[in-house]
Design a protein around this nucleic acid. Structure first.
Lengths: 255, 255
DNA sequence: CGGCTACTTGAGTGATTTCAAAGGTGGTGG
DNA sequence: CCACCACCTTTGAAATCACTCAAGTAGCCG
């Protein structure tokens, strides 16, 4: 079985398969994209506010976060990315970064030059559409986060993000049973959910006591999927995993 | 001077001019797009959760809101749109609505069939890129809202959304002096900012007393732009109005 | 004038934060 | 192998921001 390191672009076709239907021409165009693979340490900025990136990046291993830094030193984590995600696609059309992109854990990341990607997208408009769609799904995730922050209280917010991160990993094969990796530390989850790490910790205790989920040592274990979904008011529509509906509906049975 | 009603697509070229550079071929392709213009009453759903829209819509007059409805009857307003915006562009690639789109005020809206738009975008990839860019800017607005909801308290949130809505209208010519229309009612602003209308009302009083802004009768008047920007921690980078930087920097002088 | 709807204000409550400090755990060097 | 340090997690008590409930005012339209 090829490792992420040896077949980077295969990671991408697999991800895109979950959200769209690629033709053979598009698939092979993707697989032959020039790219550079780099290993980065944890907590390393990939792109900073104000930068003008010249490459898109594809996560092969590890977790990446997108975050905004506020003047008072606070930060808001906007989203998490796992293997298969292209967190930086937007830089193709938004030339100046309005936030930061950084590794959360040690990562292996493939960098694809804009100048190589652009002509390929011109020759394969279906591929361009697939990537456009990917950025629109990213936006759908943002919308769901807004709803969480605006209208759910802490318990629901945490339950909701756990549902999301578990399913997103299931779809790309990073979770099979009731458990999945969950790299963000409590303080990072808190920064993503608009909570303090102190309060997040209390919410985790509640979830543990109510036997819904457990988070220990970077592993999330779902103990009662149905109840978790209820607490979160979770509806997977926003994931737009049209091609993987079964994977999502199976979650209820397995976890 | 042509009214919005007689020259709908011109509205769109003007909006796109503010975020990208269109060639003549793209411009005329836009202007000749088939479309239907309709007048809709206030509070009218344009597309509902679960729908599969067959048209994109372009706002010609009035205010439109995107919102999520929660099971307990609460709603979260995700964004506001004004004349020139195409709130429904994403439906080109995300086939099932994961939220709702509705008029806030009485509106005039142009509907463009997907089936007409798609081939035009294939013939004019630069135009497709411009619209892709537009959806990416929409996502940038979401990110900024997440930051507001997660890390700013009520006063900053309200100040921030006022800065945003004022500038967005300036750029398309809907605001010239220190005032601009602001159609959302207090309860709607509250639903957008994750506040109760009671608390929003108190925040408005504070902003009024501190002589930063006044909101009366659907008109927002900026009294102290610099101080408002400070309270909001507002940075216009996320608007990505690369072609209208002057308009944005002038705001400080005029308001 | 009556009946809407939107806005405004007060008083009490509650969810989350702040401040402070005590456990765990893993890595490093003596 | 243990001591120590750094970082993360956990808990307690007090403060605060925003919410809930409730009532009252203002404006608009028939």
């Amino acid at each position: 079985m090829p490792t992420a390191h040896t077949m980077p672009m295969e990671m991408l076709t697999r991800k895109l398969d979950s959200i769209t239907r690629l033709g053979e021409a598009e698939r092979s165009a993707l697989l032959s994209l020039p790219h550079t693979v780099r290993s980065l340490p944890a907590r390393h900025d990939i792109a900073r506010f104000g930068d003008r990136p010249s490459h898109c990046c594809l996560v092969l291993q590890g977790w990446v976060s997108r975050y905004a830094a506020l003047s008072d030193g606070d930060r808001q984590i906007l989203s998490f990315y796992v293997a298969g995600d292209m967190p930086d696609l937007q830089s193709l059309h938004l030339h100046r970064m309005d936030h930061n992109l950084a590794t959360l854990t040690a990562c292996v990341i493939a960098f694809i030059p804009h100048d190589e990607l652009r002509p390929v997208l011109r020759r394969h408009p279906d591929l361009a559409d697939a990537l456009w769609r990917d950025t629109l799904i990213d936006a759908a995730h943002y919308r769901e986060r807004i709803t969480s922050l605006g209208r759910r209280q802490a318990l629901g917010r945490v339950a909701h993000v756990f549902c999301e991160l578990y399913l997103r990993q299931r779809v790309v094969g990073l979770a099979t049973g009731p458990s999945c990796p969950l790299a963000p530390k409590q303080s990072e989850l808190a920064d993503a959910l608009g909570l303090t790490s102190v309060h997040l910790n209390r919410v985790l205790r509640t979830l543990r006591q109510r036997k819904l989920v457990t988070l220990t040592g970077g592993v999330l274990t779902i103990e009662d999927w149905d109840e978790l979904v209820t607490v979160a008011e979770f509806d997977p529509t926003f994931l737009h995993q049209d091609n993987d509906a079964p994977a999502i509906h199976e979650a209820a049975k397995i976890a």
